[in-house]
Design a protein around this nucleic acid. Structure first.
Length: 824
RNA sequence: GCCGAAGUGGCGGAAUGGUAGACGCGCUGGUCUCAAAAACCAGUGGGGGAAACCCCGUGCCGGUUCAACUCCGGCCUUCGGCACCA
């Protein structure tokens, strides 16, 4: 009888079909069973699955399968983030309708995900571009609008000329380019929709502390992005008109050192002061110098200070001093109030500006153990010290001075303590077609009117094609934009902008709990059972955008009284990137490896095993074709273990376990030890080492069966443990072999194996003998040797004696079961 | 500049303060074969030695400890985030 070959294609097709027929992984709401919500970031369907998806979804699948087998009721859903620009770009280049392109790609990636054998509850599959989903995206927009959290305003926006739309701040990279297409964005003043995420800045920042199980780097990024600073708002008075101008400063302790005053170039006062005066031409020239440069260039640290005197002065409230007003390139319109007090002695930027324009420098903070003189300074002193030349505050420590000055400002009505955030409101409108329409109607008589909930969804018409230049057809489609005003019934015009796709993905994890609910975005009792997500898994590239927006949405939902928790994701695992030859895979580099090819050639099990074995989840890992062959070789080894070593043996030809028991006992011990180690490692997401322990067990079973006749029950325990432990990683082959060895039902329904502590302990251990901390010998000793026995054995062994020589033994340290260190 | 993460064989990577390099890849040798592939077995950090063994070795310099890849202090390098944010 010859053993069958490992035919991954046949095996995988067979089990895939069976699992689908049986809906094996559908989640059921059952309050009597502890739940686990395992979520992987859903894909944007731009084609078949790529390696990043595979790596990500393998992590989630192991967590989900492991949790199922430990008795949890697991929700492990999948869906598609299916609105977005690439669909429109495809339409422009190939003429396919975005809807068609998107649905075809969904079919492709779904096929790959199914081939990979992920244990998803496919009955909950969702797609954000379908009306039953975006109806609720629109509903959430209306809720935001009702609470004043969605508003329309004129703002300087980031315009990407290539994408033909505005972008949120978060979608502009730090070099000023569009995160999608790399084009440098321009600044345009436009009337746009925003979500008032800044209202939640403090909560979003404070609650970062609740996210104990998130990676530290993500928390840091979130904190940086929110960018809180403590300081004061101070009111200065303009000489010419007497009007009040507010500034924000983090250094109220330097208020007495102000020698000039700065306005952002976009500050409305700049125009007013310049218009019709002698300096108008100069301001115009200054504006020209700035125009055509991105904000990034303008505010780059290397950029030279540039500005213009505006012909007016302000009075400093604390000392009544009159200082000149300038506009300067480095002052940002959108941070603080767009106006700054300048203290050249204690701020490097102001120092450079003062140097260029011959403005005075006044020292008001003296550093410890040093006396600064304004004339000798080569750079600003920004550290703490003692306040001088500051009226009643002279001699005060600058740190205490901050609070003291704020107290003075507040008591006189000159200002107040204030915090500032770097975070800006979230710009959500897009001048694009392939997105959820913003449910708003503009009526000449009634103004901006929300679409009534009963009229949702506002359907995105799919019978339109992109207008000239790839522009959105919505503003040109009368049947879309013509509407009756919900309030007065008169002729009105529908909003033709659509929502940023990050809105769609900010709440999808709520929808999974009740994806078919037509009466609400989610069923409340289902949310109470399943949420929050116990384990969220995804790429680090979403550390700011998606995660911050999702946290914001969750807090808004809580304030709406729809849920009663603050944070959506209890645990977060950020996976690293898979690279090829050290570089990000991209079509232009020609270094893309396609999962589908490997599934075909080596099988889904091989691919799954390899991406998990490559290294720790959070590290970047480089793809190796030889490595993936190795994973395949291992599965072949497991296959032959069962068919060539185990199955023939189980027909008889065994040896009683009692005789020459130590060989058998060692085998059993390793089996139990492996269960312990794999369990521990899966719990801590160390899948690479978990797999290596299974490999060691397999290697040892080969030895065990080669050295002599195995004991049937020992071999059976070892082999079934291998299959049981391997199942979450390589579900198809494990199921096939489980069936072949006559296992009970499906291996994926078996309880996770348990182990016997007593058996797991080895009978013999290697005792390391050190002399003065250097290893001098290794002895094999019984595991239950007492410390005294170990000490005795170590002192007697020849190698140790050689190094001890005639020296006096000063100390002997015994680490039970492991090591003896003799100090001489 | 600030914040965070990481530096270990030819490579991916292992090591609750206690055997550095598990497991895998690659390479070398052996078994099987007419031969090869596959499979199975063995070896594989560097240097020295016939061998037993010895010396060196986890980015660098110090420190704590009987014992440091691991803890502490100071650097260097790489990657990521923030950055003229007042």
């Amino acid at each position: 009888m010859t053993a069958p070959e490992y035919d991954h294609k046949e095996i995988e097709a067979k089990w895939r079909k069976r699992w689908e027929e049986e809906s094996s992984y559908a989640a059921v709401e059952d309050a009597s069973i502890p739940k686990k919500y395992v979520l992987v970031m859903f894909p944007y369907p731009s084609g078949p699955a790529h390696m990043g998806h595979v790596a990500n979804y393998c992590l989630g699948d192991v967590v989900a399968r492991f949790s199922m087998r430990r008795g949890f009721n697991v929700l492990h859903p999948m869906g598609y983030d299916s609105f977005g620009l690439p669909a429109e770009n495809a339409a422009i280049s190939s003429g396919v309708h975005p809807a068609e392109w998107t649905r075809e790609n969904i079919a492709l990636i779904r096929e790959d995900l199914k081939k990979l054998g992920y244990a998803y509850d496919w009955t909950r599959e969702l797609s954000t571009c379908e009306p039953p989903y975006y109806k609720w995206t629109q509903w959430l927009f209306l809720k935001m609008f009702e609470r004043g959290l969605a508003y329309k305003a004129d703002a300087a926006t980031n315009w990407c000329s290539s994408c033909g739309t505005v972008l949120a701040n978060e979608q502009v990279l730090s070099d000023g380019s569009c995160e999608r297409c790399g084009t440098f964005v321009d600044i345009r003043w436009l009337n746009q929709w925003f979500f008032r995420i800044t209202d939640y800045a403090e909560r979003l920042l404070e609650d970062v502390d609740l996210l104990e199980e998130w990676p530290e780097r993500v928390l840091t990024m979130q904190r940086n992005w929110i960018g809180k600073s403590d300081g004061a708002e101070v009111v200065f008075t303009l000489e010419s008109s007497g009007e009040k101008i507010e500034i924000y400063t983090t250094r109220p302790d330097t208020l007495y050192g102000v020698t000039f005053f700065l306005l952002a170039p976009e500050h409305p006062l700049v125009d007013r002061l310049a218009r019709g005066t002698a300096i108008e031409a100069e301001v115009e020239a200054f504006r020209k110098r700035l125009a055509g440069r991105s904000e990034f260039e303008r505010t780059a640290m290397e950029a030279e200070k540039d500005g213009v005197f505006l012909g007016d002065h302000v009075f400093n409230p604390v000392n009544g001093e009159r200082v000149p007003v300038y506009t300067a390139n480095f002052v940002l319109k959108e941070y603080g109030t767009g106006a700054v007090m300048a203290v050249p002695a204690h701020d490097q930027r102001d120092f450079e500006f003062a140097g260029k324009y011959g403005l005075p420098v006044r020292v008001v903070i003296q550093p410890p153990g040093e006396t600064l003189a304004a004339g000798d300074m080569e750079e600003a002193y920004e550290g703490p010290g003692v306040m001088v030349d500051s009226g009643d505050f002279d001699g005060t420590d600058s740190e205490q001075g901050k609070a003291a000055v704020i107290e003075l400002l507040e008591s006189r009505g000159w200002g107040r303590g204030a915090v500032n955030y770097r975070l800006r409101d979230w710009l959500v409108s897009r001048q694009r077609y392939w997105g959820a329409p913003i449910p708003i109607i503009y009526c000449e008589r009634c103004g901006t009117v929300p679409v009534p909930e009963s009229d949702l969804p506002v359907i995105l018409p799919e019978d339109l094609s992109l207008a000239e230049g790839g522009k959105s057809p919505l503003p040109l489609s009368e049947s879309f934009y013509k509407a009756a005003c919900p309030t007065c019934g008169g002729d009105a015009r529908r909003e033709t902008d659509t929502m940023d796709t990050f809105v769609d993905s900010s709440w999808y994890y709520f929808r999974y709990v009740s994806p078919l609910d037509d009466s609400a975005p989610f069923d409340r009792s289902a949310v109470e059972y399943w949420m929050p997500v116990d384990q969220y898994i995804g790429g680090i590239e979403h550390a700011i955008l998606h995660l911050l927006y999702s946290r914001f949405f969750t807090k808004v939902l809580r304030d709406l009284g729809l849920i009663d928790f603050e944070e959506p994701f209890s645990n977060l695992l950020c996976q690293g990137m898979i690279t090829k030859d050290g570089a990000k895979m991209s079509k232009s580099k020609g270094n893309v490896v396609t999962p589908g090819d490997y599934i075909e050639r080596l099988g889904a099990d091989t691919l799954r095993l390899y991406v998990l074995f490559m290294g720790p989840p959070e590290l970047n890992k480089d793809w190796s074709d030889q490595g993936v062959e190795g994973a395949h070789r291992f599965l072949g080894r497991v296959w032959r273990l069962v068919h060539e070593r185990y199955l023939p043996q189980s027909n008889g030809n065994t040896e009683e376990a009692g005789e020459k028991a130590s060989r058998h006992r060692a085998m059993r011990s390793l089996t139990h030890r492996t269960i312990a180690m794999v369990t521990r490692d899966v719990e801590r997401f160390a899948f690479n080492t978990a797999i290596s322990f299974i490999m060691e067990l397999v290697n040892e079973i080969y030895h065990y069966t080669s050295e002599g006749p195995p004991a049937r029950e020992v071999l059976e325990e070892a082999v079934s443990s291998v299959l049981s432990l391997l199942a979450p990683f390589a579900p198809f082959i494990s199921e096939e072999l489980w069936t072949a060895v006559g296992g009970d039902g499906s291996v994926h329904r078996q309880p996770w194996p348990s182990y016997d502590e007593e058996l797991a302990r080895p009978e013999e251990v290697t005792l390391v003998v050190q002399v003065n901390g250097k290893v001098r010998d290794r002895l094999t000793v019984p595991a239950d040797s007492s410390d005294e026995e170990l000490r005795g054995l170590a002192l007697e062994c020849e190698n140790a004696r050689r190094f001890i020589g005639g020296s006096e033994i000063r100390k002997v340290i015994v680490v039970p079961g492991k090591l003896v260190n003799i100090v001489v």
